[in-house]
Design a protein around this nucleic acid. Structure first.
Lengths: 296, 296
DNA sequence: CCTGGCTCATATATTTTCGTATAGCATATG
DNA sequence: CATATGCTATACGAAAATATATGAGCCAGG
């Protein structure tokens, strides 16, 4: 290769991959189709391999393209993170902070916290990315993450905020209808709301609680929010945070002694952002608020 | 911001940061100084903050520039990794693989292994990055890493190759001159070669071996290679891998029962590269060779 | 004190890249 | 079977980015 290709080619490459056509990529990037075509031609020339099969209804990526995709995506998220960091460097807390959290934390706990945060910093914008992926920070897909596992990466700044207790819960209507189990064995005769996927975390959980295995579930769903909604609807007995259930009179704890878990919770930030006023303010606020929430 | 800036601006930004001047960056990138100046102007416009203080003998970065630097560097290493991956996709093992390893592994153990590897794959090029940083893979600064800590990141593929035993060693001349210690207590009267920095790993080590603390060191140096060289020169008693010392008749083990450690060793690769013929071949070869070396 | 070598800034010419317009092709729809 | 609507490919003029050339400031060395 004579000269390193323009980094803009990678951006175009990303757009073509996600849009599936030159014209679509052109629309997404605000360019025109011939320009996109030239970019892809240039990139194929630079990497020395065809990246797409041209058909009359779009482009389909080759194996080579799929192999390069993660790199191009990392460049895209890094560029976005750079621009976020650069935003609003006025010494005040403004600009955008992107927070990654689990669905439950993002939907149940964060709204009130973010409301206070926004009132305190009226020029602050929050982006919320709700998923259980844990490597967002290193892929620069978020500035701050709230996690249920201890972060091991040395380049991350982490602060423990305590543990969210979780337990078995059911709606009072369900318990009135089906009775309240007195032991873990009784659960065999109940409708249990459980998980669908088999992640390492879930496998470890299943080993700790032999009664609650996949075969015994009457409803299998991965979304913890759907879990909670099913409990509220009186479908059966499921797991949710006690903090959530305590706030809803219709939800009752089941077998509090036989079943309890604690979700260690951490607020995590990349050390590159430790000097950033905005991220620091949000990080500190999240630590304070979540710590208070857990201790309540 | 009206439109996302060209990603090429980040490349220019990197070059100006590392070269310290517009002209230097122009030389490094094969462009001209006015172009570099326009790039920096455009980037400052895009991020809305001055990035450099212009002086007549170069540019000095502002705090804003230093804050953005890690992102731009990540983009650069990602781009380089992408091009490495794209290289030589012929199904054969050719192209470039970048390996990150500790100084000792890279200088003592790898040369012979890499020689055999190169003979087996004559078109394979190896880049060797020797440092003790452990996050090279996630920053895309290497394709494969050899590490002494268990990798925790889920996106990494790791294979354990066994443990390198380490022990106290000294040159026979030194021992003839000063005598051979019979117990850990005897070390007080000897010249000990130790570490300078205070990393978490070293702190943990010091706790396991109370006799070997910083105060007792006659020579403090961080480089493990300098460590080894000092032992060879007969300076005193120091720590090195037994595999290395066993191969040199002049080096003798000291207190083999009272002091021994095992360095668990892993070969690690990012899962994005698992389908890459070249990386896979090098990964497998490193695992095989290092396993054989440890078992010997 | 002046010269050479370094820097950045600016004006102008040239090259490159981009957008517009159009043609060709495949597929879906009436 | 004709038509509409996607898509890619190509030709050409316009716009943007580039290189060249030059000026001015700073600093070290003779």
């Amino acid at each position: 290769m004579s000269q390193e290709p323009s980094w803009d080619l990678y951006r175009t490459f990303n757009a073509v991959l996600s849009e599936g056509s030159l014209s679509g990529a052109a629309r997404a990037l605000g360019l025109t189709q011939p320009s996109i075509a030239r970019h892809i031609d240039a990139l194929e020339e630079a990497v020395g391999a065809p990246l797409f099969l041209r058909t009359s209804r779009g482009l389909s990526p080759t194996d080579a393209a799929l192999e390069l995709r993660p790199f191009a995506e990392l460049m895209a998220s890094t560029s976005a993170a750079l621009l976020r960091t650069a935003e609003g460097r006025s010494g005040e807390v403004d600009g955008t902070v992107r927070i990654s959290a689990s669905e439950v934390v993002g939907i149940i706990h964060l709204p009130a916290i973010l409301t206070r945060l926004r009132q305190r910093y009226p020029r602050l914008t929050i982006e919320l990315s709700l998923s259980n992926a844990v490597d967002d920070l290193l892929k620069r897909q978020a500035d701050i993450a709230i996690r249920m596992v201890r972060p091991e990466q040395q380049t991350l700044i982490a602060k423990r905020v305590g543990s969210f207790p979780v337990g078995l819960h059911a709606h009072r209507d369900y318990l009135a209808r089906r009775g309240t189990p007195k032991s873990m064995d009784d659960l065999k005769h109940h409708d249990i709301i459980g998980y669908d996927a088999e992640t390492p975390a879930i496998r470890a959980f299943a080993e700790r609680h032999p009664g609650l295995d996949r075969a015994s579930f009457a409803l299998r769903v991965d979304s913890n929010i759907a879990h909670l909604t099913a409990i509220r609807a009186g479908f059966g007995i499921g797991i949710c945070q006690t903090i959530i259930a305590d706030a809803e009179p219709d939800l009752q704890r089941v077998l509090p002694d036989a079943f309890h878990e604690d979700l260690e919770t951490w607020v995590v930030m990349h050390e590159d952002l430790s000097g950033n006023t905005r991220c620091r303010a949000v990080f500190d606020a999240l630590v304070t608020e979540l710590t208070a929430l857990v201790r309540r």
